[in-house]
C-alpha cells in the first residue's frame, strides 16, 4: 500500500525528466568539445613550452621558432571551434 503511494508520487517526476529531452543539448556538447580540445592543447603545450624555454635559454635566436612550436597545438582548439558553427 505504502509502496504504491510512493511510486505514484515518483512517477510524475520521471515523466517530467523524459519530457525535458537529452541531458546534454547540442550547444552544450559543442561547448564541451571545445573545452576538452583546449585541455588537450594545454597538456601538449606544457611539454613543448618547457622544451622551447630550454632551447631559448641556450640560444635566444630560437625565440621565434620556439614560439611557433609552442602554439602549434592551439590549432586543435581552432578545429574544435568549427564544431560550434556546425551544430
Amino acid at each position: 500500500m505504502e509502496l504504491a503511494a510512493a511510486l505514484s508520487s515518483v512517477a510524475p517526476v520521471l515523466q517530467a525528466a523524459e519530457n525535458a529531452g537529452p541531458a546534454l543539448t547540442a550547444p552544450g556538447a559543442a561547448a564541451l568539445a571545445v573545452g576538452l580540445a583546449a585541455l588537450g592543447a594545454g597538456i601538449a603545450e606544457r611539454g613543448i613550452g618547457a622544451a622551447a624555454m630550454g632551447a631559448i635559454a641556450e640560444n635566444e635566436d630560437l625565440f621565434g621558432r620556439g614560439l611557433i612550436m609552442t602554439v602549434l597545438p592551439e590549432t586543435l582548439v581552432i578545429l574544435a571551434l568549427v564544431v560550434v558553427f556546425v551544430v
Binding site: I48, A50, A51, A52, G54, A55, A57, E58
Partner: peptide, 13 residues
Amino acid sequence: SNYEYVTARVRSR
C-alpha cells in the same frame, strides 16, 4: 621530472 626542459638545454650544450 622536467625532462623536456633539461633535455632541450642539454642537447643544445
